[in-house]
Design a protein around this nucleic acid. Sequence first.
DNA 1: TTTTTATGATAGTAATACTATTATTAAAAA
DNA 2: TTTTTAATAATAGTATTACTATCATAAAAA
Lengths: 223, 223
Amino acid sequence: MMELPLKIKMNEKLFLRNPEETELGRKIIEHSIIHIHKIGFEAFTFKKLAKEIKTTEAGIYRYFENKHRLLLYIVDWYWSWQEYRLIFQTNNITSPEIKIKKAIQLLSSPVEDDTTIDYISEKILNEIVMAEGAKSFLTKHVREDNQDKLFKPYKDLCVRVAGFIKEYNPKYKYPHSLSSTIVEMAHSQKFYMHNLPSLTDFGGAKDEKKLVSFLEELVFSNI
Amino acid sequence: MMELPLKIKMNEKLFLRNPEETELGRKIIEHSIIHIHKIGFEAFTFKKLAKEIKTTEAGIYRYFENKHRLLLYIVDWYWSWQEYRLIFQTNNITSPEIKIKKAIQLLSSPVEDDTTIDYISEKILNEIVMAEGAKSFLTKHVREDNQDKLFKPYKDLCVRVAGFIKEYNPKYKYPHSLSSTIVEMAHSQKFYMHNLPSLTDFGGAKDEKKLVSFLEELVFSNI
DNA sequence: TTTTTATGATAGTAATACTATTATTAAAAA
DNA sequence: TTTTTAATAATAGTATTACTATCATAAAAA
């Protein structure tokens, strides 16, 4: 796959100090991804992360208000990156069918590291989003967070896919719900596949192709 | 709707002392539901709950190892109750089409309190499952919990609905994935509807009917 | 009646989720 | 170059969380 310079503009409310701009900030992002992936979001603390990157707890608090904001930051980054990939891969394609298929494939296939941003591992980030992503919005403060546009990247991606669906069939009544179903299922079915396989029909490890078929059938028999 | 005596057998690994059997135990369940609903699972603590029901923190720890187990307990209770309702409502129905429709309706429609168990509010429980349910399995110890059969009620329900799908069309390749998609979407689309409406096509408050139509179309155009 | 069982009251600990202060250092502005 | 600013390191401190432990007492079962 072709690579190109990538700069994702993040919502300023996510952080206190922009982590992209400093060495320490980038280290925080890099190692929070590794660390959350390793021990899980509940066990993850700023103190542990500080130790790992040889800074102090207070040092990390200068960048992020709390660990939930940091999770939102990396999850938002992930969805922005996915939308960026989708825009790139569907560019110049006119057929809505192919665009939808591209979207499904992009969201379902195993993620490989994109080397353009060296301090973020997209592969690990993808696993975090599968396992912890829902925690970014399953809180008592969803609505305030939503008003602060903190879910914009996820919503933008869903709206884009919903747009493809509308192009394919302008009369279909539930493009947004179908779109969020695809995006969510692409991630949660994979989580189930690895952890609660009886909730899926994808037993083996190499069954991402079946997941793609499932989602494609789900969409195209509908619209 | 007709009511009948209801006794749900809970997995013994969920608790240290069976909460159904004592006054204090039932109070713990009753008020944990109310309290988690009110302040959210992250802010919920045994100390706060203890104060509410005029017992001590240590008193609650005699029943549950930690708050995650308590969440699992009430979430499991919910899915057992839903499966029970589904069994009851599809009893003597032979048409798989009608059974699937019943399932969708049961899972999507607003929940009313079932008065047979006076210390559990199914209506509130349903809202908890929409907002916090995923946290029961989005942990680093999913697999051990799964081995301990702690997700059995959820899986049983999905397997039952998958069975209806197989009855309807034995050749359909993804009955389990489609089933878990329905069950999950019935809950998460409602959550979105109230909190992140742009991810759905259900704007108004009274749009549960549209959700039912969306899910029915999703299933029947597929199988 | 004795023994078991459940609860209440209280204490204590390590870890978490922060906030605050001061000193040091590096980079930018004057 | 000097001075100012900005970023980080080092340290301390607090309230809350997530538990464990102990002992007394009341109620129920044997």
